[in-house]
Design a protein around this nucleic acid. Structure first.
Length: 634
RNA sequence: GCCGCUAUAGCUCAGUAGGAAGAGCAGCUGAUUUGUAAUCAGCAGGUCGGGGGUUCGAUUCCCUCUAGCGGCUCCA
């Protein structure tokens, strides 16, 4: 008999060789249906795993991260089996579980939509078949023999740590190399759904072998899958590309791939955001500059862009010289700093520039407004002494917290450290990284460290936002730069009479207006807070005899600085309310006999179904107050 | 840039096993003057993404280019 400890600290003695699933089932029979694997002494094991010694045992369910991983990974195996049934000559490579679901990459001819349908059908049949996943441990030789027709698996076996057992999971006649654990049988993956297929490059390296990837999601039950799918459908409806078109905010043409047009209504949003940022810049001692869009090659050679970024720049030959369109604002600001002698008394010198930037992003990567070839950032360059770095970064972090809260966005921080290829002294890097870390720790925000992901000239803190489909996009950034000031020979005279190189902090808060608006639209489903709405209030006269009063009200609201529109009375009131809702107008005011009789308006606010009555005289101030506070609701 | 898929009216989409195209919404005109998410009728609107090929004939089949979509890679 051996003794097992369970999560509630109870102990039981079982015969050697008892399956952990059996122990857990008797321990908690009411919850046993949810146990898809187990942890023994901290290591994940199958429910079939037989105990040979004493130790701590705990169940694993889908609610925890490990459980999701196990189910996702089991689903990937199931899909591999489905693929093998449809295309027997396919050679599976790897199929990991991911945060959201799973994918499996196959070395196989390009898949067709018909293949995909057949694979989908096969997968559901395998679920219904409740085929067990059975673990086997093989010798290296036996494993090599089993996978002799698949060079990929042979490589994985050869790369495996010598001495470590090689395990294989069998599902019917299909066997796959796998560490495990898995769910007991394919019936546990009732909520499997294949999302799509695409080609990927093996190992992520350009020029590598092209594999076919099948992506999917998996849940223990069909109900959970159904609720996931309905959330996903909602998310698709929030796609900023569709909203931007429908709400007439921005557009693209075939002749300008990645070059956004801001339409009148979209431009209102951009200007309001600019104003939002500008107010802060003025309060924080920034000054604004504008520098040329083009520079001769030599400027980019000095800045380092020629060496590191040329492939992503638009170039132009002008009178036998090569000019580049600036992909960033920094060179211009460097030239301004260098234009005359500078004193330490001027520092920190904060130069903001909101200029159009052009980046020749690879054609396959451009994506609506979130990845464009022409963008404007709320950019600034801070020229500081080393002692000033920390205070500036802390102030930026505080501003970021405040700014992003205004938009009710969920954001995350990432600290990127020294990359393999870097300029400068490691000791300076260490100090800079320590400074950024201290600032993040000091502000108490959670953050992730990405080792080696810093820029070649310095470490950075990036802000990431997720779009409605869960894709992560970098927006704001704070980058410490010790190199560009040296390359441009920037100097200031210190209190000690000596010349010193300043440190430059490249920073944006919102990132690019394009990307920021795209993500904000997805988060709000187009229901922007009133201060950002292109139309803030629409006035609807019930009938023709109320049109004059409605027109007068619109004029009054406009005079107050609100963006107000009249919705003429040719259509039914119901139709005009519907149109206003679809246009995402946050305030809809109705004027009819009742309202004219007591000088009131009937107001429908921000997606609320019910209208409220309030005195016409109060309407403007009430909305203005919400707008001024940049609040979401009245 | 790589792989796959897609491209029909302003938008969303149907359609033709190759015989020259249709709906809803939007637009315009008229009637209706409306009480909180779609009033009715009529009209107009398309070189079926561009170019080339096969064919008596191509929106449909083939090639190619462009753009978009989904991934990958990239992303200061």
């Amino acid at each position: 008999m051996i003794e097992v400890r369970l999560p509630d600290d109870s102990r039981r003695s079982v015969p050697r060789g008892t399956g952990v699933g059996e122990i857990l089932r008797t321990w908690a029979p009411d919850r046993a249906k949810k146990f898809l694997a187990a942890r023994f002494e901290g290591s994940p094991v199958d429910l079939e795993f037989r105990l040979l010694g004493p130790g701590a045992l705990a169940p694993v369910t889908f609610e925890e991260r490990l459980g999701k991983e196990i189910l996702h990974h089991s689903a990937a195996h199931l899909v591999a089996k489905a693929v093998m049934e449809v295309i027997p000559e396919a050679r599976p490579t790897v199929g990991p579980g991911t945060e959201e679901g799973f994918h499996y990459d196959f070395d196989v001819r390009p898949l067709t939509p018909d293949d995909f349908d057949a694979i989908r059908t096969a997968a559901h049949r395998i679920v219904a078949g409740r085929e067990p996943f059975r673990r086997e441990e093989l010798s290296r030789e036996a494993a090599l023999d089993l996978f002799k027709s698949n060079p990929h698996k042979i490589r994985y076996i050869e790369e495996a740590t010598p001495g470590e057992p090689i395990s294989v999971y069998r599902t019917g006649d299909w066997a796959d190399l796998c560490r495990g654990p898995h769910v007991p049988d394919t019936g546990w993956i009732a909520g499997i759904h294949l999302l799509g297929f695409s080609a990927v490059t093996q190992g992520g390296e350009a020029g590598g072998l092209t594999l076919q990837r099948i992506r999917g999601v998996a849940f223990p039950t069909r109900e959970e899958l159904a609720s996931y799918l309905s959330l996903r459908k909602e998310a698709e409806a929030r796609d900023h590309r569709a909203l931007g078109q429908r709400l007439e905010l921005f557009m693209f043409v075939e002749e300008g791939p990645g070059f956004p047009f801001w339409l009148p209504r979209g431009m209102v949003i951009v200007r309001e955001l600019e104003r939002f940022v500008m107010e802060h810049l003025r309060a924080d001692g920034y000054s604004e500059v504008r520098t040329p869009l083009l520079f001769a090659q030599s400027v980019f050679e000095t800045s380092g862009h020629w060496e590191h970024y040329r492939a992503d720049m638009f170039l132009s030959a002008i009178e036998n010289r090569v000019f580049g369109v600036k992909p960033m604002n920094c060179p211009g600001s460097m030239l301004i700093f260098r234009s005359r002698a500078r004193s330490y008394r001027e520092l920190p010198l904060r130069l903001a520039e909101f200029a159009p930037l052009h980046r020749l992003e690879a054609s396959g990567t451009i994506h609506g407004m979130t990845r464009v070839r022409e963008l404007v950032q709320d950019d600034a360059h801070l020229f500081v002494t080393e002692e000033q770095v920390e205070a500036e970064v802390r102030s930026l972090l505080a501003w970021i917290e405040q700014a992003f809260s205004t938009f009710r966005l969920a954001w995350s921080y990432e600290l990127s450290t020294r990359p393999k290829e870097f300029l400068g002294e490691p000791a300076v890097w260490d100090r800079a990284e320590a400074t950024l870390k201290r600032c993040l720790d000091g502000s108490g925000v959670p953050y992730r460290v990405s080792p080696g992901e810093g820029a070649f000239y310095g470490p950075k803190i990036d802000i990431h936002l997720k779009d409605s489909m869960g894709r992560s996009w970098q927006t704001g950034t704070i980058q410490l730069d010790y190199q560009m000031p040296l390359r441009f020979h920037l100097e200031y005279q210190g209190a000690d009479g000596q010349l010193h190189a300043p440190i430059v902090i490249h920073r944006t808060i919102l990132g690019s207006f394009e990307r920021f608006v795209g993500i904000l639209l997805e988060h709000t489903a187009g229901r922007l807070p009133p201060w950002l709405s292109p139309t803030q209030i629409r006035v609807l006269p019930v009938g023709e005899r109320h049109a004059e009063a409605a027109r007068a009200l619109v004029q009054k609201l406009t005079a107050l600085g609100l963006r107000a529109e009249l919705s003429v009375s040719e259509e039914t009131l119901g139709k005009r309310v519907r149109t206003a809702e679809m246009d995402r107008v946050p305030y809809i005011a109705v004027l009819g006999d009742r309202e004219l009789a007591d000088a009131s308006v009937s107001l429908r606010a921000a997606g609320r179904k019910e209208a409220v009555s309030l005195p016409a005289a109060e309407l403007g101030d009430r909305i203005l107050d919400t707008v001024r506070r940049r609040a979401f609701e009245a």
